[in-house]
Structure formats: C-alpha cells, structure tokens
Design a protein around this nucleic acid. Structure first.
Lengths: 178, 178
DNA sequence: CAGCAACAGTTGAACGTTCAAAAAAGGGAC
DNA sequence: GTCCCTTTTTTGAACGTTCAACTGTTGCTG
C-alpha cells in the first residue's frame, strides 16, 4: 500500500520543510561545535560544563542529584555517572543530604570553580562567534519568542536530553576571588 | 586571579542569556522528543531515519558512504557503523562503487523503503505537534532566516554531529507503490 | 613507472548515555 | 506499628558515537 492511499498525513509545505531542515542543521552544527570547542579548550566532556555552571549558580554551590537531573533535562542515571566523573576529576564532591537520608548533594569544589572560571571566557567567545554576534537584536528576540513557544508545547518535564549537549554561560565574573 | 581582572570577555546580556538558554533548552527537548518518538514507534535508532530519508531521495536510492557522511554532518566512522546496523536490519544493502574501487554504495532496499514509509506519517505528526503547528507563518520564516544566518557563520563542512540526532521528513508520498 | 601524498572506508577500543533492575528511605492508610 | 506505594539514587549491561590506527585505491610528481 502506498501512503497516499491510506493516510491523511499533513505533510510539510516547502516553506516548513526548508525551515525545519535549516533549523535542524544549524542547531546540530552549533551544539557540536560548542562541545568540540569546550572539549578542546577545557577538556570537558559534553554536559560537564553545564553541570558546573548549575552548581556555581546554586546557593551553597551545591545541588541534589534530583535537581541536577531536572535542570539538565536528563535522567537520574546520567547524573550519577556524570557527577561520578566530575568527582574523579576533583571538580565536585559528594555530601549526604541533611534533610533527606536518601538524597545526595553534589558540591562544586574550588578546583571545579577554577576550572569553570578558566573555561567560561573562551566558551562565551565561541558562543558569540557562532551564534550571538551573527544575529541582530531583533533576531535574538525572535529566537527567544520561538523557543519559548516550542517549550510551551513540549512535555513539561520531558526527561529527555540526548547527546545534544549545549552549554550554559556561567556568571563567573561574580565569583569570589581565589 | 579573578576573571574580571585579567579578561575583557564580552559576557552575554540578560536578553542574550535568556534567548540562548531558551533556545538550547527547546532544541534539546525537541530533538530528544522526536528521537524518542521515532524509537518508540518505528524502532529506529537516532539518526537511522535521516539516513533512510537521504537514501530514499537519492537518484538510485543509493549514496556513497562519503556522501552520507557529508549530508549528515557526521564522521565516516559513524556512517560505517550506522549503515552496518541498517544492513543487519535488511533496510540497506552494500554495493561496490563502479567508478571508484575504494568506494561503497549504500542502497535502500524495498524493506528499508517500507520501513521508512511506515515511519514517516507518525514522524511528521510528531514534528507538527512539537514544532510546526505551534508556530505562525511568520515564526517559520523567522526560524529559517535565523537558522541560515547561523549556518553561514559556522565552518562550512564541520564534521560534527553529536547525539543531537534530528530527523528529516521524507517525501514518501512520492514513492513508487510496492 | 616507481614513489608518495591524499582519499575512501573500515576496525576496535574508549567514552558517555540509556535502560531495566534493585536497594534504601520517605510518607500515608489502616 | 506495619504494610505498601512512591521517591531518590545507584548499578551494570547494552547501545551508539568518537577517536586513533590501519588497509587499500587513486592520482600526481619526477
């Protein structure tokens, strides 16, 4: 049977097709490039930077495994493994949660803070070079609007974060001096 | 040393930061969701759908490994492994390249064509539900414009395609009946 | 027609994510 | 206080990508 006989699928128009393919290609290339840069410059595995940023921004430089999983849209299992690697690197330490004996806190160490501070400037430069500086203020606003529209239609707490690793930008300029 | 003392890094403005984080979050969630849907509905590994689409659109339903690598922005090694899995599934067969004894052609089999035709309608529905139908015509146009601006600033043939798997939409409605 | 750099593709190990299963603790209901 | 369901986290195997060799072919240079 051919599709056209049995389905009423609303295929994409040429416009939609073009937009989607361009978007998919751009996003893939962008994320891959940023991860590659981050790995090259700072030796950070995909996603590690994001975890460090989240911890650096958190109240006591610490977050529960659960919170890390939700913030990064990834599975608890991934967090366990990823934090384990950061612990091995000395960038994070574990601390048992005082209020819930099941829980664990991941705490950013001074070494982790330093590694993040060292990596951030180059990361921001790359992000500007690959994305921000090529866009007008209007583009930025459009991108945000469209992204938020997409987010509003996606499963609120979709536990899904593939390789698509992406890095946040740390507010390291506010970090206490070492 | 603190960053602020030694660097002239142009940090992101609040607007840029918001746009970037929304974009990154939306793109990640979107791609992950689409891959998850595709894996659930059609049993296709991340990226498999894209390879099948490319082959279906190609002249003789066949492309060289090299061409697949370039079109998917991925490494030759990934193509070798990925095509190997598709061959095991019976969706693709290998054929030696007549014009270049080093080369190999990946050829979409009838089974592969059927699998793609079966998967495409649901994939398009998901893509519409998660992305297209939530956007206005203006949004679509903006998304395309911004994506192309980003692409124009990225390394032309950046051999980089992380997990960020993304699927194209097949033009399966034009496929010959089986 | 050697010699040799570049190209096309494969191989296998290392790495990170996903998945299913399990251990351990919280929070109610009775 | 005990049963039971839920939540939090870990574990180890399976899977896919990346990376660094490696094989074989092309095509250019002298």
């Amino acid at each position: 049977m051919t599709i056209s006989e049995t389905s009423t699928t609303r295929w994409l128009t040429a416009e939609e097709q073009h937009a989607w393919r361009s978007f998919a290609r751009a996003a893939r290339l962008l994320f891959a490039q940023l991860d590659h840069d981050l790995s090259r410059d700072a030796g950070m595995a995909p996603g590690a930077y994001e975890l460090l940023v989240l911890l650096a921004e958190a109240p006591q430089r610490s977050l529960r495994m659960n919170e890390l999983a939700e913030a990064t849209l990834s599975s608890p299992s991934r967090i366990t493994h990823a934090v384990g690697r950061l612990v091995d690197l000395g960038w994070v330490s574990r601390s048992s949660c005082p209020s819930d004996r099941r829980g664990w806190l991941a705490v950013l160490t001074d070494e982790g803070q330093s590694a993040l501070a060292a990596a951030a400037p180059r990361h921001v430069e790359h992000l500007r070079a690959h994305l921000i500086d090529g866009l007008s203020a209007q583009d930025i606003a459009d991108l945000r609007r469209i992204s938020e529209a997409v987010l509003s239609r996606l499963p609120a707490s979709g536990t899904a974060a593939a390789g698509c690793p992406t890095a946040l930008v740390a507010a390291v300029e506010d970090c206490p001096p070492e």
